[in-house]
């Protein structure tokens, strides 16, 4: 009986913290809740009672079909564009940066050190400084080569490879330094050429960094607005999801039922992905930051 007051005090404290946590969680979810309940309302209902639960949940379905039908959001096609641009960018950024980082680590000359520092310097350049000349560059490239770079997949993806390179090269560089050289030498003795050494031996070892980068770059590219709005444009033919939402919101000013439904439809895929890959996503985001 002698320990019971302390135990009681501790369990009371724990209960209090638990309740406090739940309260905070509800507070954090409040905006999401608002979006969900208001996506299922008609326009008049939103204005009169924005906080109460909808009277008729079937409105949600009506709003969704309405969104799918509108051709200024073009949901399916922008969803596809987002997926395509994000996944191709992720793979190319990952592979190309790993290749670059590998040769930079394994070639010990002053050039490789210099090039690595050059990449690092790129990390401090904010996008705002580059964006105006970039738009101009894309136009110049078109008039030089005849290939359209604005409002195309390859234009956006190439830009992402350039902007994603510094951080990715930096993370790979740090990791490759810790891989023992012996494995690579053994592979060369067994008759691998240098590219084979990289693709067959080194690349599989890099998997943890690859996952981190998939998360970090994936979150950035999927949600990015500024680069697509400059390279693709709000009225572009390969619009990504953020662009479509902005386009819709600009077009139907204050038509909240539609805007909130489109917001819900844009956010849902990522949230669902998060539920399944929670551990990887959280680990990727934090380990990327700490390095």
């Amino acid at each position: 009986m002698s320990t019971s007051p302390i135990k009681k005090k501790r369990s009371f404290r724990r209960l209090f913290l638990e309740l406090f946590g739940i309260g905070l969680l509800l507070l954090f979810f409040f905006p999401f809740l608002i979006v969900i309940i208001n996506s299922a309302k008609s326009a008049t209902e939103i204005i009169s009672t924005p906080l109460s639960f909808p009277t008729d949940w079937s409105n949600l379905l009506r709003n969704i079909t309405e969104i799918l039908g509108r051709n200024n959001i073009d949901y399916f096609s922008s969803f596809f564009n987002s997926i395509f641009i994000t996944s191709v960018s992720l793979i190319t950024i990952g592979v190309f940066s790993a290749m670059a980082a590998w040769v930079l680590v394994r070639t010990k000359t002053k050039y490789s050190m210099f090039i690595f520092l050059f990449f690092l310097a790129g990390m401090v350049i904010p996008f705002q400084v580059v964006m105006l000349p970039l738009v101009r560059l894309l136009e110049t490239l078109r008039s030089l080569t005849g290939i359209q770079f604005k409002d195309t997949y390859h234009g956006v993806i190439l830009a992402y490879i350039g902007f994603g390179a510094p951080l990715s090269v930096f993370l790979f560089h740090g990791f490759i330094k810790s891989i023992p050289l012996d494995i690579e030498e053994a592979a060369i003795i067994d008759g691998c050429t240098k590219p084979q050494v990289f693709f067959k031996i080194v690349l599989p070892v890099l998997k943890p960094v690859f996952v981190t980068l998939l998360v970090l770059n994936g979150m950035w590219i999927w949600n990015d607005y500024l680069l697509p709005v400059l390279v693709i444009g709000l009225g572009g033919s390969v619009k990504t999801l953020p662009l479509s939402v902005a386009n819709l919101a600009g077009f139907y000013d204050k038509e909240w039922g539609l805007i909130l439904t489109s917001v819900l439809m844009a956010a849902l895929p990522v949230l669902i992905l998060f539920l399944f890959a929670q551990k990887h996503i959280i680990k990727g985001m934090t380990s990327g930051a700490i390095k």
């Binding site: 670059a100 390179a165 090269v169």
Partner: peptide
């Protein structure tokens, strides 16, 4: 190996 990412980096950044 350096060309793709360094090229894109030089050209676009």
């Amino acid at each position: 190996f350096l060309l793709p990412s360094l090229g894109a980096f030089l050209l676009f950044v």
